[in-house]
Nucleic acid binder design. Structure first.
Lengths: 201, 201
DNA sequence: GCTTCGTTCGAACGCTCGTCCGAACGGTCT
DNA sequence: AGACCGTTCGGACGAGCGTTCGAACGAAGC
């Protein structure tokens, strides 16, 4: 598939750093042949990103349907995200890196997908910690995304822990942390109040 | 300062996407004037990255000296990282994005700095959870880095929570998570064993 | 056999890229 | 005054960029 090969090239050299001729060499399709399939280099990038989000959103809706428990929903979500990431590292690197390179019309369509995705995550989180009024949901959401998305910089499938364990571990960090005892202000150890730092004031 | 203005340009357009003429326009220095200060575009990028790491490493060593408590060391580390990030969003975006664009000789020097930095973090973490043999330190370390580094995609100084609170919140997530009760396998709630998922087998 | 259609390509277009050259500037020394 | 020096610049260089055009292909329909 041309999209996949192109994604590899863009992931390695960056979108601007890779030339159409690089893509041509990698895919075996002539330069003008590429322009038969895509009407511009921008559209090629858009198609990669759009197809990627389409797939991940599709799978997410499928796997989430019928799952009601908030924590379980989050687990499904993280598992899905990490599995897709690990299976499509090149595409996801392109997705993370070249988010704002596209001209407005293309970009807004990808942004819409991205918004739907992160709102799904936000909703799952909100369902999980509804009791904490004034929770800084934004920080929590993006911290989770940060953990997950950053793996394209270090994770090597086959050498690092498998995706299932990665999911477990990140879920654990996010829900329970390293689980050190929390020091109370009187110097003794204590269990944290769930909402201790989650209030906004 | 030329380095700072250049970083802004590179952050906005990407290193390959930005031309020397863009940098010239942003800095007010003529194109050939720039080549009086830097012998190539690559060197300009290198100087930005190198100077950035130099500063952050310098401050880190300063702030860490005399701090012995492992948890406190981690707090200093996270605080430093986030503060520097928030104060130099453009440079840090360039640092994150264009890490592997440089030719080998430049890149290896930046990689050395990066290694020193992440080993400092790794050591702090190891000191914090020494009791857990077979801890997957790698996952923990990069999850923390992910949370922190990802902020360049969403954090807006002045609009989001201040850096101090951000530090607090990320520390809390990383050490204690959202603090939901952990379900034991018999269906009752229970307190997690600190090392529960941190063993490797 | 001839035409049409979807597909593929080599070669060229105009343009922008990173880099370099030679001249010009304002000081400071003799 | 003249010579030198660090600094700055306009303008040019070849290379490579994204994109386009017209020709060539094999298969399908008449």
């Amino acid at each position: 598939m041309i999209l996949r090969e192109s994604a590899l090239v863009f992931a390695e050299k960056g979108f601007d750093g890779a030339s159409i001729r690089d893509v041509s060499a990698a895919t075996g399709v002539s330069v003008s042949g590429l322009y038969y399939y895509f009407k511009s280099k921008d559209e090629l990038l858009f198609l990669i990103q759009h197809h990627c989000f389409e797939t991940i959103l599709h799978r997410l809706r499928e796997d989430l349907s019928g799952v009601d428990d908030p924590e379980e929903r989050l687990r499904v979500l993280v598992g899905n995200h990490l599995r897709f990431f690990a299976d499509n590292m090149a595409e996801m690197k392109v997705l993370s890196h070249e988010a704002d390179v596209l001209p407005d019309d293309y970009r807004s369509r990808v942004t819409d997908q991205k918004r739907e995705y992160s709102e799904t995550v936000g909703a799952a989180l909100e369902a999980l910690v509804p009791e904490a009024e004034g929770v800084d949901l934004r920080v929590a959401t993006f911290s989770l995304f940060g953990m997950m998305n950053w793996i394209y910089t270090w994770y090597r499938p086959g050498k690092d822990v498998p995706v299932d364990r990665l999911t477990e571990q990140m879920m654990h960090i996010f829900l329970h942390g390293l689980q050190l005892p929390i020091r109370a202000s009187d110097g003794q150890t204590a269990v944290a109040e769930p909402t201790s730092i989650w209030r906004n004031s």
